[in-house]
Design a protein around this nucleic acid. Structure first.
Length: 520
DNA sequence: GCAAGGTCTAAAT
DNA sequence: TAGACCTTGC
C-alpha cells in the first residue's frame, strides 16, 4: 500500500526517464514487486501448485527478462528480497492474508463450477509470493552471477541502506520499485512503473527539497520532516488520524517544521478523534522508517538503517524489537545469502532435496535411473546432486573451475545445509577440475551469445551410465538457456526433457528455464 | 479544498 | 492488488 496518495501528491516532481540514465551504475530492485508482477501470468498454477506444471515458474522468466534488459543497458542489478515481517506491520499483513484466502476459496468454487475465466481472475487476487518462490529465483540469480541480498526484514529499508552507500561499498544509485514507502525510508532516487523496455517515472528526493517556486513546496523540508509527513498521511505501520490525508500532513509539517509541534497541534485540533496511543505509535512508525534493522554485508551483521537517536539509544534490546528483532551474525548472513528461510529460519534445501520425489518415481526417474536432483552452476563452478533410485544413495559433487578455495567454502555450506540428510547414504565429493577445462566466463551483455561448458563426469558415471554436459547460453531473447545432454558410456547422446527423449538439440528459452526446475 | 470512499483498470502472456 | 480517477460530503 505504501504512503497513501503520496505519488499523486508528488506528481510535479515525477519525471519520465529511461533506465539507461543509470548505465555503468548499480541499481537496486525491490524483488518482490517483480515477483508479484511475474506471478500474475501463472497465478492459477501457483495457487494450485500442480506437480510438474512448468507454467508455475513463469515468474522467473519475467524477472530474468527484466534483469537482462538492465544488463543490456550496462546496469548492474542488485535484487533485494523481503525477509521476515516486522511486528508493527502485522495488521496489514493479516489483512492481506485474509483477503487472499477469501479470493482463493472463491477461485476454487469457480473452478469447480467450470468457470475457468472467473477462477483465474480470483487466483490473480489470491496469489501470494512465498519465500520458496524467492528462493527459486535466487538459485537462478546465483547461476547467472547476479547480485542479490535477502533483507532481514523489509526490503525497502535494505534498499534505503544500499542507497546511502558509495558504489565501491556495495551502494546503489537508484531503486526500481512500485512502493512509495521507499521515499519515506529516505531513498534518494526511486524509479516507479518501469516497463519492459526500461521506461519509468523517477523521483529524486534531493531535487524535491531543492526546487523553489514549485508546488507543493518542500523547501524547508529535510528527510526527517518528509518521513514524518508520510507517517501522518497514513502508512502500512499506522493509519492516519481521521480527517488527515497527504495534503493536511504536508500543510502541518510546512507550518510547524518540527514533528513534536505538529503532533501537539494535531492533538489540540483533533481532541478525542486522535487515538490515545497515536503519539507512541507515530514515534515507533517514524523510528522504523529511520532506524529499521538492515543487513550490513561488510560486517556481516544487522545494523540500523541510520544510527539510533538520543532517545532510542537507551532502549534495551527487546524494547527495540519493533525495528525488527535482533538476529545473530550467522543467522543474518544465512538469511542475506538466501540459505535460510527468513520466516521459518529453516534451511531452504530441505524443501528442495525432497525425498518424496524419489519415493514416487517420475517419468524422468524411469527414463534415467539416476536422477539429477539439483544442479547449480556459476561462472566459477557448480555442484550436482546425483541420486540413485536403485540404491537410494545420494552423492554430491562440487566442481570448481577457477578458484579452488571456493569449492571448499561451497562444500562446507552444502554440508551445513544437508545435515539432516547427512548419513551413510549421502556422499560429498570435491571435484575441483583443472583450469584448462574451464569455459568462457559469461560477461554481462545478455545479447551476446555466450558459451559455458561444465563437464561433470566422474561423479555421475559412478552412479549410472550417464554423464551430463551442460551448456549455458544467453540469447537475444534475454533468457538463459539450459541444454542438458545425457551421454552414456558408449558415447550415444540423448536429450532428456522432463523424462521424454527429444531429438532437438536446442529448446525454447522458456522451456529450458522451466526444465531446469522440473529436474529439481 | 480536501478527505474518504467507491469504481475502474492494468499488471503478464 | 494497488494506483488512478471520480463523486460525495464536510
Amino acid at each position: 500500500m505504501g504512503i497513501k496518495d503520496l505519488l499523486r501528491f508528488m506528481k510535479p516532481y515525477v519525471h519520465p526517464i529511461h533506465i539507461n540514465k543509470y548505465a555503468h551504475k548499480r541499481v537496486g530492485i525491490d524483488a518482490y514487486s517483480w515477483l508479484h508482477k511475474g506471478a500474475y501470468s501463472c497465478s492459477m498454477e501457483l495457487c494450485l501448485n500442480t506437480e510438474g506444471d512448468k507454467k508455475k515458474f513463469q515468474y522467473i522468466n519475467y524477472c530474468l527478462h527484466r534483469i537482462n534488459m538492465l544488463r543490456h543497458h550496462n546496469i548492474t542489478p542488485v535484487l533485494v528480497f523481503d525477509g521476515c515481517n516486522i511486528p508493527c506491520k502485522s495488521q496489514t499483513d493479516e489483512h492481506r492474508h485474509s483477503k487472499r484466502k477469501e479470493s482463493r476459496e472463491l477461485a476454487m468454487a469457480k473452478l469447480k463450477q467450470g468457470d475457468t475465466n472467473a477462477a483465474i481472475e480470483m487466483f490473480q487476487r489470491a496469489v501470494s509470493i512465498t519465500p520458496l518462490m524467492a528462493y527459486q529465483l535466487i538459485q537462478v540469480l546465483r547461476s547467472e552471477n547476479i547480485e542479490f541480498v535477502v533483507a532481514p526484514y523489509e526490503a525497502d529499508a535494505q534498499l534505503a541502506y544500499l542507497s546511502s552507500l558509495d558504489a565501491d561499498k556495495g551502494g546503489i544509485a537508484a531503486v526500481i520499485s512500485e512502493d512509495s514507502d521507499l521515499l519515506a525510508y529516505g531513498c534518494t532516487s526511486v524509479i516507479f512503473k518501469m516497463d519492459r523496455y526500461g521506461n519509468g517515472e523517477e523521483i529524486v528526493i534531493d531535487k524535491v527539497f531543492d526546487s523553489a517556486g514549485r508546488l507543493p513546496s518542500f523547501l524547508h523540508f529535510n528527510k526527517e520532516l518528509f518521513t514524518g509527513m508520510c507517517v501522518l498521511a497514513g502508512c502500512d505501520f499506522l493509519p492516519s488520524v481521521p480527517g488527515i490525508g497527504i495534503g493536511k500532513a504536508h500543510a502541518l509539517v510546512s507550518k510547524y517544521r518540527n514533528l513534536d509541534r505538529v503532533l501537539s497541534a494535531l492533538k489540540f485540533e483533533k481532541g478525542d478523534q486522535m487515538p490515545k496511543d497515536y503519539l507512541t505509535s507515530f514515534k515507533e512508525a517514524l523510528a522504523v522508517f529511520q532506524h529499521a534493522r538492515i543487513y550490513d554485508a561488510d560486517s556481516k551483521k544487522l545494523k540500523h538503517l541510520t544510527p539510533l537517536g538520543e532517545t532510542l539509544v537507551h532502549y534495551s534490546g527487546e524494547e527495540l524489537d519493533f525495528l525488527g528483532p535482533e538476529l545473530s551474525s550467522s543467522q543474518a548472513s544465512a538469511i542475506a545469502e538466501g540459505l535460510l528461510d527468513p520466516c521459518t529460519m529453516k534451511a531452504f534445501n530441505k524443501l528442495l532435496v525432497c525425498d518424496d520425489q524419489l519415493k514416487k518415481p517420475t517419468a524422468v526417474n524411469n527414463a534415467v535411473p539416476n536422477r539429477i536432483l539439483k544442479k547449480e552452476t556459476t561462472t566459477e563452478g557448480c555442484f550436482t546432486i546425483v541420486s540413485s533410485c536403485k540404491t537410494g544413495t545420494k552423492k554430491i559433487a562440487v566442481v570448481n573451475k577457477t578458484k579452488p578455495d571456493s569449492s571448499f567454502e561451497l562444500l562446507s555450506n552444502l554440508k551445513q545445509l544437508i545435515s539432516p540428510l547427512n548419513d551413510n547414504s549421502v556422499n560429498i565429493v570435491d571435484r575441483t577440475i583443472p583450469a584448462k577445462r574451464s569455459s568462457v566466463v559469461p560477461n554481462s551483455n545478455p545479447f551476446k551469445r555466450l558459451k559455458q561448458t561444465v563437464v561433470i563426469d566422474d561423479c555421475a558415471s559412478e552412479y549410472s551410465e550417464v554423464t551430463e554436459v551442460e551448456h549455458l547460453e544467453m540469447t537475444p531473447d534475454s533468457q538463459k538457456s539450459v541444454e542438458s545432454k545425457f551421454v552414456n558410456k558408449t558415447g550415444v547422446k540423448k536429450m532428456v526433457t522432463s523424462g521424454k527423449k527429444v531429438e532437438s538439440k536446442s529448446e525454447s528459452n522458456k522451456n529450458t528455464i522451466l526444465n531446469f526446475f522440473s529436474r529439481v
